[in-house]
Nucleic acid binder design. Structure first.
Length: 850
RNA sequence: GCCCGAGUGGCGGAAUGGCAGACGCGGCGGACUCAAAAUCCGCUGUCCGCAAGGACGUGUGGGUUCGACUCCCACCUCGGGCACCA
C-alpha cells in the first residue's frame, strides 16, 4: 500500500512493528519544523526538506530504518500577528494554514511518515508541553551533583535536616507559607520580579534572545524597554556549564557552537571584597592581578548598595566635575539614576559610549594596598552582569581609562607595556609593576602567575575567592498574549503557584473571540501589559479539587512563549499517539539513545537555518537536559548532529524611499538598471521572503516543470550549506536533463522501453561504476549538487553511445541512483523497466570493486 | 573594535597538493523545419594568431613544494555573528 511506504516502524508502543525494525540500522532525520504562515510556501522554504528527503531516501535504499516526519510550530507571535492582520481567529487561521502547507509540501514528494506530523497547537500535543513544564516546575538544580532533581527530594532533605536552610533555622520552625516560598525559590521554573524586556508594540515581554542589538523586538521591530516586572523564568543559568561543556561532544558547525559559547559567556575570574562604610562591596574581575591598579570603584545605578553608600554631604574640596554641581551626593545620585532609567537600551547605544557617572561622596579600601578609592555610580557598569560593581583599573581597562580621563582619576599601570607602547590602557602580556605591599609582592610576575598568586592571597586573607560568571540570564518564559500554551498553574489565596496534577491536563486554551492584545503606544515605556486570558472570567477563576476538597483558585493568565512547543517536538515525533507518556522510553532509546561511551545521543541529523543558533537550539537543549536528569530520556542532548543549510536568495528591489517593491513586477533594462512602475529601483540580494517582497511560489514551477525538476534544481544550485540566488531561468537545464533521461530509456512515440539485454561496452561500464561510487559518496556527504552533475554526465554519455537502446545493466542502476532526487520519475521508469512495486527499498547500486 | 566564513569564466558553481573551470544557465554556429518552438550536434576563460600553436589566468603581495584554487604569512574586499560583559 503506497500510503504506508514511508511509515517508520517503532520497536514498541502504538506504532510498533518489531519485525520491520529487525536488525536494520536506524536513522532519525529531522528538519526544523515550519510556522505555518498565511503567505504559504515559497521555493526557499523546502530547500532543507528536499535535502533531508534525498538523504533519507538514499539511506533507506542502504537498508536503514529511516524516521522522517514534519510537524508544525503553530503557537506564538507570528501566527497570532497574522491572525490579527487578517481578522481571523488564530485557531481557524492556523488550521487553514496547516492544510495549505500540507497540500503544498505533499506535491514535493517528501517521504515523511504522515502519522507523526504533529502540531504544537494540538491539545494532544500541548498537554505534554504542559506536562514537561510541570516536570521543570517540580525540579530544582542540585549544584553538588550538577543535575536536576525532583523538588520533593529537596523538601525531604530540608525536613530531615540533611540540608540546611539559608538562615539556619530548623525547617519545622518555618510557617507553611515560608516553606513554600523557600521551595519556590529553588524551582527550575519560578516567578520573579526581575528586569525584563517590555515591548508595548507587541503588548508582551520578550526574552533577551528575542531583542536585537538595537534594543528592538526581533519581530515587528518595535522599541523594547527595560523594566522590572513579575514574570515566569526558567533557571537556564543553572545549566550554563553543561550547556557549554557538552558542545564539545556535538557534531555541530563550529560557528554555531561559538555563538552559543559567546551567548552563555563564561568568564573565569575572582570576586574581591572592598570594605566601605556601608559594608563590603563585592566586585567581579577577570584581572585580579591588576588589583594594585584599582584606583576607583564603579557601581551600576541600580546597585542595591548605592543608597547606603551615598554620603550625606560632599567631602571637602570635591571637584565640581564629580558632583555634577548638585548640592549633595543624594541629589546628584538621584538625578543620575533618573536620567539612566529614562534611557532605553536604544538611547544608551546612540550615545556613542561616552562614559558618564557621578561621585557618591564615599570611599572604599583597596584590600591590596589599603588605599582609599572614590566610589562612583555610572551606567557603563551593568547590574545584570557579575555583581553590578567593578574595581576600576584604568591602566589595564579601556573603559576605566576613558572614565578616569574624563573625571581626572589616578591611573596606575600594573603591567609593564612594551617600550614602543603609545596606547592608553594596556591589555597585553608583561611583567607586573607597582604591585607590592607589606604582605604581597607580584612585581615581575607574568599575568598568569600574578593571577594565581593573588588568588591564593585573596583566599587566605578573606578578601575574595575564585569565581565564574556568565553573560547568560535566566530565560523569561511568560508572554502576555493569547495564542500560546496555558500554564498548568493555579494560585491559592497565598498567591503562591501550585502545579496542577497530571490528571487535570491538558489545561485547554479557552475560546476567546476578542483575542487581540489591547493596542498600546509602542513608544510608551510606562504602559502596562494586559492579559488577554483575563477576559475569560469563567476560566480565570476555577473551582478545583486538589486533594482537600473543592476550592476556588486563580489560574495563571500568562501563556508560554512560542519556543515552548519546539523544545521537545522531536521526542513527540517518536511516539505521537502515545496517550500515557510523552514518549515511550524504549522508543526514545531506540531512536535517540547514545550509541557509544561519550556519545550524548540525540537526533542523527538535524537540518535547519542558522537563525536559531541561540534561541531554539539553546532552549531545546535545556529542556532535554532536564528530562535527561529526571530519567525521562536516555539521551543527554537532543541533536547529536546539526547541519545548517544555506538559504535561497533572490533579487530584491528598493525604490528611492528605501522601500521594497514587488520583485516580480520590476523591469530590467539593457543598461543594467531596473525600474518599477516607471520609477528607478536598486537591486540587492537577500533571503527570499515576504519582507523583501521577492518570494517565488512553487505552484508555477510545479505547473511548468513538475516537482522532480524543482527538487533536482534546488539540489543542484550549489553546496547544501551555502546560500544561493534563485534563478528561474536556470531550471530549464534540469528539465532538459530529465527529458533526455526519459528519452534514453523510453521511446517517445511508441512508449516502448528502449532497454536492451546486450552487455554494455567497457567504457560505459567503467563510467557506470565510477558514477555509482561517486554518487553514493556524495549522497552520504550531503553533496547533492555534485551527485547530480555525475548523473548528468552518465546520462550524457548514454545519449552519445547508446543510440540503439540502453543496456539493462546500466539502465537499472541509473534509475535507482536518480530515485533519491527525482523519486516520481524514477518510480515511473522503474515500473517501465518491468519491476514490480516501489523502488524505495531497493538496494542502492554498489560499484564492482574490479 | 573582536570572533567566524567566503573571494575561481558573462552567471550559479566543480576541483582540498597532481591536466583549473566538471555539471547547468547564457552566448555563438550548425542539423531538422516553409517557419518557429522543441530536440540534436559542435564551439564557448582572456590575449596574440588565418591556422597550427603560444602567452597569461583562481581577490592582492610574499613564502613552502618537483608541483599550490588547495598549505603558511601579510593585506584588500564582501557576508555573518558579537559588541560598555569588568
Amino acid at each position: 500500500d503506497a500510503e504506508h511506504t514511508f511509515e517508520a516502524p517503532n520497536p514498541a508502543g502504538p506504532l510498533a512493528d518489531p519485525e520491520r525494525v529487525g536488525g536494520r540500522p536506524k536513522l532519525f532525520l529531522l528538519d526544523m519544523f515550519p510556522y505555518p504562515s498565511g503567505a504559504g510556501l515559497h521555493v526557499g522554504h523546502p530547500l532543507g526538506y528536499i535535502g533531508t528527503d534525498v538523504f533519507g531516501r538514499y539511506r533507506r535504499m542502504k537498508g536503514f530504518n529511516v524516521l522522517h516526519a514534519l510537524g508544525y510550530d503553530a503557537f506564538g507571535l507570528p501566527a497570532e500577528q497574522y491572525a490579527i492582520e487578517t481578522g481571523t481567529h488564530p485557531q481557524v487561521r492556523t488550521e487553514q494554514n496547516i492544510v495549505n502547507y500540507r497540500a503544498q509540501l505533499r506535491r514535493l514528494g517528501l517521504a515523511h511518515d504522515p502519522r507523526r506530523s504533529v502540531s504544537t497547537t494540538d491539545e494532544s500535543y500541548y498537554r505534554w508541553t504542559q506536562w514537561i513544564f510541570l516536570q521543570i516546575f517540580e525540579s530544582w538544580y542540585d549544584r553538588d551533583l550538577a543535575r536536576a532533581r525532583p523538588i520533593a527530594e529537596l523538601r525531604e532533605e530540608l525536613a530531615a535536616g540533611t540540608r540546611a536552610t539559608p538562615d539556619g533555622r530548623p525547617w519545622a520552625e518555618f510557617t507553611p507559607v515560608e516553606q513554600r516560598r523557600l521551595i519556590d525559590d529553588h524551582r527550575l521554573a519560578y516567578i520573579a520580579e526581575a528586569p525584563v524586556n517590555w515591548c508595548p508594540g507587541l503588548g508582551t515581554v520578550l526574552a533577551n534572545e528575542e531583542v536585537t542589538a538595537e534594543g528592538r523586538s526581533d519581530r515587528g521591530n518595535y522599541p523594547v524597554f527595560r523594566r522590572s516586572m513579575r514574570q515566569w523564568m526558567m533557571r537556564i543559568t543553572a545549566y550554563a556549564d553543561r550547556l557549554i561543556d557538552d558542545l564539545d561532544r556535538l557534531d555541530w558547525p563550529e560557528s554555531i557552537k561559538t555563538m552559543q559559547r559567546n551567548w552563555i559567556g563564561r568568564s573565569h575570574g575572582a570576586t574581591v571584597a572592598f570594605t566601605s562604610g556601608a559594608g563590603p562591596i563585592e566586585v567581579f574581575t577577570t584581572r585580579a592581578d591588576t588589583l594594585f591598579g584599582a584606583t576607583f570603584m564603579v557601581l551600576a545605578p541600580e546597585h542595591p548598595m548605592v543608597d547606603a553608600l551615598t554620603a550625606p554631604a560632599w567631602p571637602e574640596r570635591t571637584r565640581p566635575l564629580w558632583t555634577g554641581l548638585h548640592p549633595t551626593p543624594a541629589a546628584a545620585v538621584a538625578a543620575y539614576r533618573a536620567a539612566a532609567a529614562a534611557k532605553t537600551d536604544l538611547a544608551r547605544q546612540a550615545e556613542d559610549r561616552e562614559k558618564t557617572g557621578v561621585f557618591t561622596g564615599s570611599f572604599a579600601v583597596n584590600p591590596a594596598n589599603g588605599d582609599l578609592i572614590p566610589i562612583f555610580v555610572a551606567d557603563y557598569v551593568l547590574m545584570g552582569y557579575g555583581t553590578g560593581a567593578v574595581m576600576a583599573v584604568p591602566g589595564q581597562d579601556e573603559r576605566d581609562w576613558e572614565f578616569a580621563e574624563r573625571y581626572g582619576l589616578r591611573i596606575v599601570r600594573t603591567v609593564q607595556p612594551p617600550d614602543d607602547w603609545e596606547g592608553r590602557a594596556y591589555l597585553g602580556e608583561g611583567p607586573a609593576i607597582n604591585s607590592a605591599s607589606a604582605t604581597l609582592d607580584l612585581n615581575g610576575l607574568s599575568v598568569e602567575e600574578a593571577k594565581a598568586a593573588i588568588a591564593s592571597w585573596l583566599e587566605a586573607n578573606g578578601h575574595g575567592r575564585a569565581t565564574t560568571t556568565y553573560r547568560l540570564r535566566d530565560w523569561l518564559f511568560s508572554r502576555q498574549r493569547y495564542w500560546g500554551e496555558p500554564f498548568p498553574i493555579v494560585y491559592d489565596d497565598t498567591g503562591l503557584p501550585i502545579g496542577l496534577p497530571e490528571s487535570m491536563l491538558p489545561v485547554t486554551l479557552p475560546p476567546l473571540d476578542d483575542f487581540r492584545p489591547r493596542a498600546l503606544d509602542p513608544d510608551d515605556a510606562t504602559s502596562e501589559p494586559e492579559l488577554p486570558l483575563s477576559r475569560v472570567e469563567w476560566w480565570a477563576c476555577a473551582e478545583l479539587d486538589l486533594g482537600d476538597g473543592p476550592r476556588l483558585y486563580e489560574r495563571e493568565l500568562n501563556v508560554m512563549p512560542q519556543w515552548a512547543g519546539s523544545c521537545w517536538y522531536e521526542l513527540r515525533y517518536l511516539d505521537p499517539t502515545n496517550e500515557n507518556r510523552f514518549v515511550d522510553p524504549e522508543v526514545e532509546r531506540y531512536w535517540m539513545g547514545p550509541v557509544a561511551p561519550g556519545d550524548p545521543g540525540g537526533v542523527d541529523l538535524y537540518v535547519g537555518g542558522v537563525e536559531h543558533a541561540v534561541l531554539h537550539l539553546l532552549y531545546a537543549r535545556l529542556w532535554h537536559k532536564v528530562l535527561f536528569d529526571l530519567g525521562h530520556v536516555s539521551s543527554s542532548e537532543p541533536y547529536r548532529r546539526l547541519f545548517n543549510q544555506g538559504y535561497i536568495l533572490a533579487a530584491a528591489y528598493k525604490d528611492e524611499r528605501e522601500i521594497y517593491v514587488e520583485a516580480e513586477e520590476v523591469e530590467p533594462h539593457a543598461d543594467g538598471t531596473f525600474s518599477y512602475q516607471g520609477r528607478p529601483v536598486v537591486r540587492e540580494w537577500g533571503k527570499m521572503g515576504k519582507s523583501l517582497k521577492n518570494a517565488v511560489g512553487p505552484d508555477d514551477i510545479y505547473a511548468d516543470y513538475g516537482a522532480d525538476t524543482l527538487r533536482l534544481y534546488e539540489m543542484s544550485m550549489g553546496p547544501f550549506d551555502t546560500s544561493r540566488p534563485w534563478s528561474t531561468r536556470d531550471i530549464v537545464g534540469y528539465y532538459r536533463f530529465l527529458q533526455r533521461l526519459w528519452r534514453n530509456l523510453v521511446d517517445e512515440r511508441t512508449g516502448a522501453i528502449r532497454v536492451v539485454d546486450a552487455p554494455a561496452d567497457d567504457e560505459t561500464l567503467r563510467l557506470l561504476h565510477r558514477t555509482m561510487d561517486a554518487v553514493a559518496a556524495d549522497y552520504e556527504a550531503l553533496h547533492f549538487n555534485t551527485a547530480v552533475a555525475k548523473l548528468i554526465e552518465l546520462n550524457n554519455h548514454l545519449t552519445r553511445v547508446a543510440t540503439g537502446g540502453v543496456p539493462r545493466e546500466v539502465a537499472e542502476p541509473l534509475v535507482l541512483m536518480m530515485a533519491p532526487v527525482t523519486p516520481h520519475l524514477a518510480e515511473e521508469l522503474w515500473a517501465s523497466l518491468g519491476q514490480p512495486g516501489s523502488l524505495a527499498y531497493e538496494p542502492f547500486p554498489v560499484a564492482d570493486p574490479t
